[in-house]
Amino acid sequence: MVGSFIKLSKVALMAGALLVVSCSPAKQAASEPRTEFSIGWSIYAGWMPWPYAQQAGIVKKWADKYGIKINVVQVNDYVESINQYTAGKFDGVAVTNMDALTIPAAGGKDTSAIIVGDYSNGNDGILLKGADNLAAIKGRQAYLVELSVSHYLLARGLEKAGLKPTDVRTVNTSDADIVGAFGSPDATAAVAWNPQLSVMRGQAGAKQVFSSAEIPGEILDLMVVDTATLKANPNLGKALAGIWYETVALMQRQDAEGKAARAAMAKLAGSTPENFDSQLSTTFLYADPKAAVAATSAPGLVTTMTQVRDFSFSKGLFKGASSADAVGMAFPGGKTLGDAQHVTLRFDESFMKLAADGKL
């Protein structure tokens, strides 16, 4: 495990360079049974069920059922939320598949993805000013959170447009600052996720030229938990699954209660109900736990994570490793990817399956 962590609220590049340590991470220390846990989250349409569930008493309901307490804590900067989880401040965090791999897992922190909540189906996009074709990005500076899913989306977009990574120079910008940065007349290209993306899309001359809808299922949004903590406290996983599926079922409803839940989530995200509903329209939510179990167990997840880890390795995020196989991943059914002796990212469908089987 990484012994100490630098606060990186603005510098995702340093997150990749400093938190990723070696291809032989130390084993997680054994965790003890506990009754209180903290879960970190940052603003994103697919993660707003978590703070809403806390506000509406759904977190307390499920935590009480299992005799525990769960604190759902907002972090204003997304990368910082992952860093705090990796450093042990949080027991779990809302994170994308790539960032779960490249920060905690590649840093040696054994991490379990227990809820595959959604995939970005247009919630991440590439914007240009004064052009409506991605090919026009050649030679420009692109503002984005470097080494995040935005960087991955840019790489996939360039690939599909027949361009090379060297055709664009990236400018590392935190998600907290990117709206302001793109507002500068000198900024003519950016990659972002919602809600920032929707705001930036409204700026003068801005056009969205590529989005995650063109690579469906590749940018996944997860709830991950420290594996040792989960093993010692399986009730945490059960409570989190119960919270998630009750809340998502509520927000999917088209009656007054569902509308009120979505409006409350919009307010928590600093958005309007109309804008939030627009963001949800580009988020493929796995509202049905059976669908989530199927997606997590499907061969396509291994294919997706192969693409993600190969990109991550190409960017030097597995520091000191000689191949992309350095960081091991485990999938349902006993499948593994990479070094099976050093698995630090596990896709664990068991809690989603309990929800699907009505056994929570």
Results as ranks from 00 to 15, higher is better:
Gly3Phe: 10
Lys7Thr: 14
Leu8Ser: 04
Lys10Arg: 13
Lys27Ile: 12
Gln28Val: 05
Ala30Thr: 09
Ala30Asn: 07
Glu32Tyr: 13
Trp41Val: 03
Ile58Gln: 13
Lys61Phe: 12
Ile70Met: 06
Val75Glu: 15
Asp77Ser: 12
Tyr78Leu: 04
Tyr78Gly: 01
Tyr85Val: 00
Thr86Glu: 09
Lys89Gly: 13
Gly92Met: 01
Gly92Glu: 05
Ala94Phe: 10
Leu101Arg: 04
Leu101Trp: 05
Pro104Val: 01
Ser120Lys: 08
Leu128Gln: 10
Lys129Trp: 08
Ile137Gly: 08
Arg140Pro: 11
Gln141Pro: 10
Glu159Val: 00
Asp167Gln: 06
Asp167Ser: 10
Val171Trp: 12
Ala176Leu: 05
Val179Pro: 09
Phe182Asp: 06
Pro185Trp: 06
Ala187Met: 09
Thr188Val: 14
Ala189Asp: 04
Pro195Arg: 01
Leu197Tyr: 12
Ser198Cys: 02
Ser198Phe: 13
Lys207Ile: 00
Phe210Ala: 08
Ile215Pro: 14
Gly217His: 10
Gly217Gln: 06
Glu218Thr: 13
Lys231Asp: 09
Lys231Pro: 02
Gly237Ala: 02
Met251His: 13
Ala256Ser: 12
Ala256Met: 04
Ala264Val: 08
Ala266Glu: 09
Ala266Gly: 13
Lys267Ala: 15
Ser271Glu: 15
Ser271Pro: 12
Asn275Gln: 15
Thr283Arg: 03
Ala287His: 13
Asp288Leu: 02
Ala292Leu: 01
Ala292Met: 06
Ala298Met: 08
Gly300Asp: 14
Thr304Met: 14
Met305Phe: 15
Met305Ser: 11
Thr306Cys: 11
Asp310Trp: 06
Leu317Phe: 03
Phe318His: 11
Asp325Pro: 06
Gly328Gln: 03
Ala330Ser: 15
Gly334Arg: 00
Lys335Tyr: 15
Gln341Gly: 15
Val343Ser: 12
Val343Arg: 11
Thr344Ser: 11
Phe347Pro: 06
Phe347Gly: 04
Ser350Asp: 05
Ser350Trp: 04
Lys359Asp: 04
Lys359Ile: 00
